[in-house]
Design a protein around this nucleic acid. Structure first.
Length: 549
RNA sequence: GCGCCCGUAGCUCAGUUGGAUAGAGCGGCGGACUUCUAAUCCGCGGGUCGGGGGUUCGAAUCCCUCCGGGCGCGCCA
């Protein structure tokens, strides 16, 4: 709001001063550093070379024009450093922010950048051969948060889980389960996890002694999927569609996509196999679609699957993959382009992997060796909110070390409680006000100019930046940016809470601060919602029954 | 060998679409509760932004190169 106004004022001033518009639009104005006013522009520096005069001179010309039509709230305009134009605003601009937050309510921070987009977001999609492992929790938390972020900018978002239930891995799983069922060791290349022993016992208890290998596999597959749904429900993630790879094969979709690729001239036979000429679309090598034994590859099915997503009406596809699948990105995109879809579909968000550490040592996870720490194990130890926020603390471009000892024992100083506590404090203020019978006057009737404490203004400044933070997080597919905003905001709120008592004898201040607290609650609750973390109205005290010393 | 990601405070990490004195949490030290919940707040200390070149008025950020770490590079999925 203020930014748009300053932006327009700057453009008008540049025109009035006979200056060209700087290259690129937007980002003309950004928040200034502390001590340099409230908002600043580097436009003069960007223009200096084209104009052929020193940046500070250009800045002076712009400022002279700005002074003739000074925007609202602007008290002073200065030229600092190498040529920054700095706007020093009266606090009144922040009162407008407060009013905007309250007026917008739960729409505050929403944008329209993706309005009209119908996005299919596929994430997790772990093979249905065992429980979700702890590291996979990163994709659960990140995927759900990205879905929320895209939706916050106007997109219709569909959460989808792809079940690879047609391939060799499920066969291996079936053989392994059946072996356990018969009291034998799993095959050499099979899965050795304890969970299969447990499943085999249940299989015997439920189905008796005459189960065939096919029956064992199918029963086990459905058990695993049921478990996946349960684990995801525990952490609060719901998928709109569970898509079965088998359906593609049964409906002839895979064969059909192969025919279409051939018809379009992008497939060829060589050495007994059918290949996709993916090099024609920028891939580093061509890829096999049908193996020498006549079976379609994973890629062939994946192409049929992604084509199906488009056919179901989604106009943009987003997949979230672990970095270990990085090598497949170009192949899939090449194949999709060969099928006539736009380039760079699907958009693939790659996340670096999670390293689990326990007892100071790295825990290697493998369903094959049986050494597995599951997401459910984590959820047995910590609150889902803790798990989620821990996964959302870091950029997905960085490999994450998930230290089980730290996450499960460090709850005292866990950031999730820090931010939730801020929300709980706001709710507590509301309860106290009600308890004391404090009259709540409408915002229109409240004088906000009594909000002059640096803590109050600091909180309002952070509130002003929230929509940008969300929009950037969505654009960059970087939910950790919301986490960063939330932590910063919670810190500011705690400072405010400490130094600015809301409910006091001074009715004018009480009324204004109650609205400030309400605005803070709106943004905090929204941000936590985007992250999939609860915004509690109260926190159970940590020290209850535990302060015996 | 090739490709992608990472290397920032003792530790874990933000900041990377070029901007002004590089930030936070944890840990260390020292303070603040007759108060709307101290799971809080305040202060102190802490840095060759992996090394070296380059582009630029300006580089943690862009380019080149080297070093270190992670992940890939199948007629596996």
């Amino acid at each position: 709001m203020i930014r748009e106004r300053l932006d327009h004022a700057l453009r008008d001033a540049m025109t009035a001063a006979g200056l060209p518009a700087p290259a690129g639009d937007g980002a003309l104005v950004e928040p200034a550093r502390k001590g340099f006013g409230d908002w600043g522009s580097n436009a003069a520096m960007r223009l200096a070379r084209d104009v052929g005069s020193p940046p500070r001179d250009v800045a002076q010309r712009i400022v002279a024009a700005l002074e003739r039509a000074r925007p609202d709230h602007v008290e002073r305009i200065t030229v600092d450093g190498p040529g920054f134009i700095n706007f020093h605003l009266a606090p009144t601009w922040l009162y407008d922010v407060l009013r905007e937050v309250v007026a917008s309510g739960d729409r505050y921070g929403r944008g329209q950048a993706y309005a009209g987009q119908r996005i299919n977001l596929e994430f997790v999609s772990a093979n249905p051969t065992g429980p979700l492992h702890a590291g996979g929790g990163r994709w659960v938390a990140v995927g759900d948060a990205i879905a929320n972020l895209l939706a916050s900018q106007g997109a219709e978002v569909h959460r989808e889980y792809y079940l690879n239930d047609a391939g060799a891995q499920l066969e291996t799983f079936g053989r392994s389960l059946y072996a356990r069922y018969r009291g034998e060791d799993p095959p050499e290349d099979g899965y050795r996890g304890q969970y299969l022993v447990d499943m085999a016992e249940r299989l015997r208890a439920e189905r008796g002694d005459d189960v065939t290998e096919d029956e064992a596999r199918e029963w086990g597959y459905h058990e695993v999927v049921r478990g996946l749904r349960e684990d995801l429900a525990r952490i609060g993630v719901r998928f709109d569609t569970w898509f079965s790879e088998r359906d593609l094969h049964e409906h002839g979709e895979v064969d059909d996509v192969l025919r279409e690729l051939a018809a379009r001239g992008h497939a060829f036979e060589d050495d007994g196999a059918v290949w996709l000429r993916s090099t024609a679309f920028g891939d580093s090598r061509d890829r096999v679609l049908v193996k020498g034994d006549g079976a379609p590859t994973y890629l062939a099915a994946d192409l049929a699957y992604h084509r199906d997503k488009f056919r179901r009406g989604w106009n943009h596809l987003v997949d979230i993959w672990g970095a270990d699948h990085h090598g497949q990105v170009k192949s899939l995109q090449s194949g999709m382009e060969a099928l006539g879809f736009p380039p760079n579909e699907p958009e693939v968000i790659l996340g670096q992997l999670v390293t689990l550490v326990s007892g100071g040592a790295v825990v290697r996870i493998s369903k094959r060796t049986g050494n597995i720490i599951t997401l459910a194990d984590i959820l047995d130890e910590v609150d889902p909110d803790v798990a989620r926020l821990t996964f959302l603390l870091q950029s997905i471009d960085s490999a994450q070390t998930f230290d089980l000892d730290v996450v499960t024992s460090q709850s005292m100083e866990n950031p999730v409680y820090y931010v939730q506590y801020a929300h709980a404090r706001i709710a507590s203020i509301g309860r106290k006000a009600a308890e004391l019978g404090v009259e709540r006057r409408p915002l229109d009737e409240v004088d906000l100019t009594v909000l002059v404490h640096e803590r109050e203004l600091d909180l309002l400044r952070a509130l002003a930046l929230y929509p940008d933070a969300v929009a950037e997080a969505a654009a960059l597919r970087a939910p950790h940016r919301v986490t960063a905003w939330v932590r910063d905001f919670a810190a500011r709120f705690h400072g405010f809470y400490r130094d600015c008592r809301v409910i006091s004898e001074d009715d004018a201040i009480t009324q204004a601060r109650l609205w400030l607290a309400e605005a803070a609650r709106i943004a905090l609750a929204d941000a936590l919602g985007l992250l999939g973390v609860h915004a509690p109205d109260e926190m159970s005290r940590l020290d209850e029954g535990d302060d015996g010393q």
